[in-house]
């Protein structure tokens, strides 16, 4: 219980502070919605939000395609090639963000690729892809391979098997993977900070700037909105009916 308090105390204070009239936090000086009102008219924040959503959507799509393929191959085949494959897919999960961001930055600089939305998408796809694979491999382990044999036995061809058997049964796994990828992408700061170029700022990078140089109260309000959105997504995903088994 104490651990839960430790986890939530800062968040609760943040929410309270976002309604505090005091500009630099501190003691309670009265209730206000002013900070939220200021956010509504803030064009750079809106641009950053749109950019964040674009980046997250595209990276989620790519990492879902790559991750599904990788999970399937890793599940289906064993051998030397797959051990290498496994290592490459899983290593990014334990590499510190700053290292991954640095190495990608060096690649883009050396290859002469201009930093911008494209480089952010490449970077996000790379780390989201590992997580998607992780989630899907777990789902595939619960999957009964005999079902594929059964469908083949009843005359189905691969396109039918994919659309009628695999996708419906792996659907919840794909949704979970997509949700995770999207959230990770929206959340990422360190890697994005390193590979972002002018004009391709995402929301976390923008928030970072505000934290360093802007009004703390405004950051509080923005954070609360951001948090409310993530909590809503997570809670709905948890409340969705689970596949009975």
């Amino acid at each position: 219980m104490a651990a839960l308090l430790f986890l939530y105390l800062p968040i609760i204070v943040l929410v309270i502070q976002s309604f505090n009239t005091a500009r630099y936090g501190g003691s309670w000086q009265g209730f206000t919605l002013d900070w939220y009102r200021q956010l509504a008219g803030n064009a750079p924040i809106q641009r950053a939000t749109v950019n964040t959503l674009i980046v997250a959507s595209v990276s989620t799509f790519f990492s879902l395609v790559l991750g599904t393929l990788a999970a399937w191959v890793l599940h289906r085949y064993k051998g030397g090639l797959q051990r290498l494959h496994y290592l490459l897919v899983y290593a990014p999960l334990v590499i510190p963000d700053i290292l991954m961001g640095m190495s990608l930055l060096l690649l883009f600089v050396q290859a002469g690729i201009p930093l911008g939305r494209g480089t952010i998408i490449i970077a996000h796809t790379t780390f989201c892809f590992s997580y998607v694979t992780l989630v899907l491999i777990g789902r595939l382990q619960d999957f009964d391979d005999n079902l594929i044999d059964a469908a083949l036995d009843l005359g189905a061809r691969w396109p039918t098997i994919i659309t009628r058997i695999l996708l419906p049964l792996l659907g919840p796994g794909l949704a979970a993977g997509a949700l995770l990828a999207f959230t990770l992408s929206v959340d990422d700061f360190v890697i994005t900070f390193l590979v972002a170029g002018p004009g391709s700022t995402t929301l976390p990078v923008h928030v970072y700037g505000m934290m360093k140089f802007g009004s703390p109260a405004l950051v509080n309000a923005l954070s609360v909105l951001f948090m409310a959105a993530t909590f809503a997504i997570v809670l709905t995903s948890q409340l969705l009916p689970k596949e009975k088994s």
Binding site: I11, V13, D187, V207, P216, N220, F226
Partner: peptide, 30 residues
């Protein structure tokens, strides 16, 4: 879910929350 939920919030926000908390005029100091 309660344990994981903070993990789903943006970690910059979590850091910033602590900054507010530990701020010279913040609640912990008071």
């Amino acid at each position: 879910i309660l344990v994981i939920l903070p993990f789903w919030t943006n970690f910059l926000i979590r850091i910033f929350a602590w900054k507010t908390l530990l701020h010279p005029e913040g609640y912990v100091k008071e």
